[in-house]
Amino acid sequence: MSEFDEYKIIKELCSDSDAIRRAAFAKVVEHFSERLYWQIRRMVIVHDDANDLLQNTFIKAWLNLDSFKGNSKLLTWLYRIAINESITFINRERQRSFLTLDSDQANLEEKLEGDIFFDGDGTQIRLQKAIMSLPLKQRTVFNMRYFDEMKYEDMSKILGTSVGALKASYHIAVKKVEDYLGQND
């Protein structure tokens, strides 16, 4: 993969030429798509859903480029769109199926077990189920911190929540996951 110069890419995205802007956006897609995919996938579990949401994320980003003010990194801005898309999708699924929090967890577990693109061992399945037992916001924070090792400052920009609140949310989530794993040994 060629070197990604964010300053140069943003300048090209500001070009008056449609061809240059489109080529620059293609570089953005190439550079960030895999990382965004995994974030979305951990939230919605199923590959096909993650693929659809990733496509929606980039289409929305392209159509709303004028909302990018440059006061955050491109990845932060894209993460925010991806997280919003994922949360909207999960809430829509809940409403459509009249799911409560408990039945939502059962629904996700069912999806996990039925997903042909899930290949986890027993420990990983239990970890995923523990994560699914978390409320949506805590699950998002846990995934970003635990798997992506994202800084709290970056998470704060993406989620619009204070660093202190995110730290508290993550520590509560870790405690719940540990308790879940302890109960299901």
Binding site: I10, L13, C14, D18, R21, R22, F25, V29, Q55, F58, I59, W62, L63, N64, L65, D66, S67, F68, K69, G70
Partner: peptide, 11 residues
């Protein structure tokens, strides 16, 4: 899938 029309960042 990206539409032809887009817009420019507000830099």
């Amino acid at each position: 899938l990206i539409p032809q029309e887009g817009c420019i960042p507000d830099v």
